[in-house]
């Protein structure tokens, strides 16, 4: 068993936990903030767009069971790669889509997956998700962790635009 980590920013982190956490081989998923200039930012600072962080999830996974490539493939189905200015109803750079890679191996996987997605013709707009070096990841406040379990109704509402995106672009996949 080799435990690895991956960091994805795909808009509101409330909606990014369950799809990963429920997969086999996932140890845990934490919601947090990364890519900014302030240490230990709070949600209020984040929401005020003054720290440069994006909302993201950090995933601990066993790469004997699930590969980084599979996680990236799932990530494309969760976050709209053609929208650089936010994700769905959440707007602003706090919600921009980013794959934060921790090493060269992850970068190669992410880059080739991005190229394959662009070449697939699935989207009629350019793929604008950025691939950036991982930066310090700060856990969000505890009330934001595993939000889908704590406030399922709210999470369901926030998921509505994402479900539409999945239906529009990924109806050939079996994710719900």
């Amino acid at each position: 068993m080799t435990m690895q980590t991956a960091i994805f920013a795909g808009g509101c982190f409330w909606c990014m936990v369950e799809p990963f956490e429920t997969l086999p081989g996932i140890d845990k998923v934490r919601s947090g903030y990364t890519g900014g200039t302030v240490e230990n930012p709070s949600y209020e600072q984040m929401a005020a767009h003054i720290t440069g962080h994006t909302e993201a999830v950090k995933i601990w996974f066993d790469d004997d069971i699930i590969s980084y490539d599979e996680l990236v493939t799932l990530y494309w189905q969760l976050a709209d790669p053609t929208d650089a200015m936010g994700q769905f109803a959440d707007r602003g750079e706090t919600y921009r889509p980013v794959i934060f890679v921790k090493d060269e191996a992850q970068r190669q996987v992410a880059e080739s997956s991005k190229q394959a997605l662009a070449a697939s013709g699935r989207f009629d707009k350019p793929i604008v998700t950025t691939i950036e070096d991982a930066k310090p990841f700060y856990d969000a406040e505890e009330e934001h962790q595993q939000f889908y379990k704590k406030n399922p109704l709210r999470e369901m509402m926030m998921m509505m635009p994402r479900k539409k995106y999945q239906k529009q672009y990924w109806s050939d996949k079996e994710r719900n």
Partner: peptide, 21 residues
């Protein structure tokens, strides 16, 4: 409160999308 305004704006966008749909 800014956080409440932000939440209201986000939810309003979701409702707009639902209504359009």
């Amino acid at each position: 409160i800014p956080l409440l305004k932000k939440a209201a704006k986000t939810n309003q966008r979701i409702v707009n999308a639902e209504q359009d749909s």
